[in-house]
Computed example of a mutant assay.
Amino acid sequence: MSPLISNDLERIFEKLDKNRDGQVSLEELNWLLERIGVELSLHELESLVGKPGLDFNEFLFFYKSISAPDSNDGDDGSGSGSSDHEDESDLVKAFNVFDVNGDGYISCEELDSVLRRLGVMEENSSRDCRSMIHVYDTNLDGMLDFQEFKHMMLQNTIS
Protein backbone atom coordinates (compact mmCIF):
# COMPACT_ATOMS: atom_id res chain seq x y z
CA MET A 1 0.00 0.00 0.00
CA SER A 2 1.36 3.42 -0.87
CA PRO A 3 1.20 6.55 1.31
CA LEU A 4 -1.39 8.12 -1.00
CA ILE A 5 -4.47 6.20 -2.04
CA SER A 6 -5.70 6.06 -5.61
CA ASN A 7 -8.37 8.73 -5.01
CA ASP A 8 -5.72 11.13 -3.72
CA LEU A 9 -3.51 10.43 -6.71
CA GLU A 10 -6.44 10.95 -9.06
CA ARG A 11 -7.12 14.39 -7.53
CA ILE A 12 -3.43 15.29 -7.83
CA PHE A 13 -3.43 14.15 -11.47
CA GLU A 14 -6.53 16.24 -12.23
CA LYS A 15 -4.99 19.33 -10.58
CA LEU A 16 -1.76 18.86 -12.54
CA ASP A 17 -3.54 18.35 -15.87
CA LYS A 18 -4.17 22.07 -16.37
CA ASN A 19 -5.38 21.80 -19.97
CA ARG A 20 -7.57 18.76 -19.20
CA ASP A 21 -6.18 16.68 -22.05
CA GLY A 22 -5.85 13.53 -19.91
CA GLN A 23 -2.06 13.86 -19.86
CA VAL A 24 0.31 15.32 -17.30
CA SER A 25 3.15 16.99 -19.18
CA LEU A 26 6.73 16.80 -17.98
CA GLU A 27 6.52 20.48 -17.02
CA GLU A 28 3.43 19.82 -14.91
CA LEU A 29 5.03 16.75 -13.31
CA ASN A 30 8.27 18.64 -12.65
CA TRP A 31 6.30 21.42 -10.94
CA LEU A 32 4.91 18.86 -8.47
CA LEU A 33 8.26 17.17 -7.91
CA GLU A 34 9.88 20.54 -7.14
CA ARG A 35 7.14 21.27 -4.57
CA ILE A 36 8.01 18.09 -2.69
CA GLY A 37 11.74 18.68 -2.83
CA VAL A 38 12.77 16.53 -5.82
CA GLU A 39 15.03 18.57 -8.08
CA LEU A 40 15.30 17.23 -11.64
CA SER A 41 15.92 19.01 -14.89
CA LEU A 42 13.34 18.50 -17.62
CA HIS A 43 15.97 16.51 -19.54
CA GLU A 44 16.56 14.19 -16.56
CA LEU A 45 12.82 13.78 -16.07
CA GLU A 46 12.30 13.02 -19.76
CA SER A 47 14.97 10.33 -19.71
CA LEU A 48 13.40 8.89 -16.55
CA VAL A 49 9.85 8.92 -17.93
CA GLY A 50 10.73 8.22 -21.57
CA LYS A 51 7.92 10.29 -23.07
CA PRO A 52 6.57 13.86 -23.10
CA GLY A 53 3.60 13.17 -20.82
CA LEU A 54 1.78 10.59 -18.73
CA ASP A 55 -1.83 9.45 -18.71
CA PHE A 56 -3.37 8.54 -15.34
CA ASN A 57 -2.27 4.89 -15.38
CA GLU A 58 1.28 5.87 -16.31
CA PHE A 59 1.18 8.52 -13.58
CA LEU A 60 0.19 5.82 -11.04
CA PHE A 61 3.01 3.58 -12.24
CA PHE A 62 5.48 6.49 -12.02
CA TYR A 63 4.32 7.29 -8.47
CA LYS A 64 4.66 3.66 -7.38
CA SER A 65 8.10 3.37 -8.94
CA ILE A 66 9.48 6.44 -7.18
CA SER A 67 7.82 5.70 -3.83
CA ALA A 68 8.89 2.04 -3.51
CA PRO A 69 11.77 1.75 -1.04
CA ASP A 70 13.58 -0.91 -3.09
CA SER A 71 12.98 0.61 -6.53
CA ASN A 72 16.72 1.27 -6.96
CA ASP A 73 17.56 -0.90 -9.97
CA GLY A 74 21.25 -0.37 -9.35
CA ASP A 75 21.14 -2.16 -6.00
CA ASP A 76 23.02 -5.42 -6.36
CA GLY A 77 22.15 -6.58 -2.87
CA SER A 78 25.78 -6.27 -1.73
CA GLY A 79 24.78 -4.14 1.21
CA SER A 80 26.92 -1.19 0.19
CA GLY A 81 24.54 1.09 2.09
CA SER A 82 24.52 3.86 -0.52
CA SER A 83 20.88 3.28 -1.47
CA ASP A 84 19.94 3.21 2.24
CA HIS A 85 21.67 6.57 2.64
CA GLU A 86 19.85 7.93 -0.43
CA ASP A 87 16.53 6.61 0.89
CA GLU A 88 17.16 8.32 4.25
CA SER A 89 18.12 11.55 2.47
CA ASP A 90 14.94 11.41 0.39
CA LEU A 91 12.88 10.86 3.54
CA VAL A 92 14.54 13.85 5.20
CA LYS A 93 13.71 15.99 2.14
CA ALA A 94 10.10 14.79 2.16
CA PHE A 95 9.84 15.39 5.91
CA ASN A 96 11.15 18.94 5.46
CA VAL A 97 8.46 19.65 2.86
CA PHE A 98 5.80 18.89 5.48
CA ASP A 99 7.67 20.50 8.40
CA VAL A 100 6.82 23.97 7.15
CA ASN A 101 8.06 25.88 10.21
CA GLY A 102 11.23 23.80 10.56
CA ASP A 103 10.67 22.83 14.20
CA GLY A 104 11.30 19.12 13.63
CA TYR A 105 7.65 18.09 13.85
CA ILE A 106 4.75 17.79 11.42
CA SER A 107 1.65 19.28 12.98
CA CYS A 108 -1.90 18.76 11.82
CA GLU A 109 -1.93 22.30 10.45
CA GLU A 110 1.28 21.75 8.47
CA LEU A 111 0.04 18.43 7.06
CA ASP A 112 -3.27 20.01 6.11
CA SER A 113 -1.55 22.99 4.47
CA VAL A 114 0.81 20.90 2.33
CA LEU A 115 -1.86 18.39 1.30
CA ARG A 116 -4.21 21.21 0.31
CA ARG A 117 -1.41 22.85 -1.72
CA LEU A 118 -0.90 19.56 -3.53
CA GLY A 119 -4.65 19.26 -4.17
CA VAL A 120 -5.06 16.13 -2.04
CA MET A 121 -7.17 17.65 0.74
CA GLU A 122 -9.99 20.12 0.71
CA GLU A 123 -10.79 22.97 3.12
CA ASN A 124 -11.82 22.00 6.66
CA SER A 125 -9.93 18.72 6.51
CA SER A 126 -8.14 19.13 9.85
CA ARG A 127 -10.06 16.21 11.38
CA ASP A 128 -8.75 13.94 8.60
CA CYS A 129 -5.21 15.18 9.27
CA ARG A 130 -5.56 14.52 12.98
CA SER A 131 -6.66 10.97 12.16
CA MET A 132 -3.71 10.46 9.81
CA ILE A 133 -1.25 11.71 12.41
CA HIS A 134 -2.84 9.70 15.23
CA VAL A 135 -2.19 6.40 13.43
CA TYR A 136 1.61 6.93 13.49
CA ASP A 137 1.99 9.22 16.52
CA THR A 138 3.65 6.70 18.87
CA ASN A 139 4.43 9.22 21.63
CA LEU A 140 0.89 10.72 21.44
CA ASP A 141 2.03 14.34 21.25
CA GLY A 142 -0.31 15.10 18.34
CA MET A 143 2.56 15.60 15.87
CA LEU A 144 4.91 13.44 13.82
CA ASP A 145 8.62 13.57 14.48
CA PHE A 146 11.06 12.30 11.84
CA GLN A 147 11.15 8.72 13.18
CA GLU A 148 7.33 8.49 13.19
CA PHE A 149 7.23 9.96 9.68
CA LYS A 150 9.90 7.51 8.51
CA HIS A 151 7.97 4.59 9.99
CA MET A 152 4.80 5.80 8.25
CA MET A 153 6.50 6.15 4.87
CA LEU A 154 8.37 2.85 5.02
CA GLN A 155 5.38 0.90 6.30
CA ASN A 156 3.11 2.33 3.60
CA THR A 157 5.48 1.69 0.68
CA ILE A 158 5.93 -2.02 1.34
CA SER A 159 3.62 -4.01 -0.91
Rank of each mutant, 00 (worst) to 15 (best):
S2C: 03
P3M: 14
L16G: 08
G22P: 02
V24Y: 08
L26V: 06
W31R: 13
W31E: 13
L32M: 14
L32H: 06
L33H: 13
E34S: 14
E34H: 12
E34Y: 07
E39V: 05
S41D: 01
H43G: 02
S47H: 12
G50A: 03
G53R: 15
G53E: 15
L54W: 14
L54I: 15
F59L: 04
F62T: 06
F62R: 06
Y63K: 01
Y63D: 01
I66K: 11
D70A: 02
D73G: 09
D75P: 01
D76C: 07
G77D: 06
G81R: 13
H85P: 00
E86S: 14
V92D: 01
A94M: 11
V97M: 15
F98T: 13
D99A: 04
N101H: 09
N101Y: 09
I106V: 12
S107Q: 10
C108S: 15
L111N: 00
S113G: 01
L115Q: 11
L115A: 15
L118E: 03
V120P: 14
V120N: 11
M121V: 00
N124Q: 11
S125M: 03
R130K: 02
R130W: 00
H134N: 14
V135R: 11
L140V: 08
G142L: 08
L144V: 03
D145F: 05
D145G: 09
Q147V: 04
N156K: 14
I158M: 13
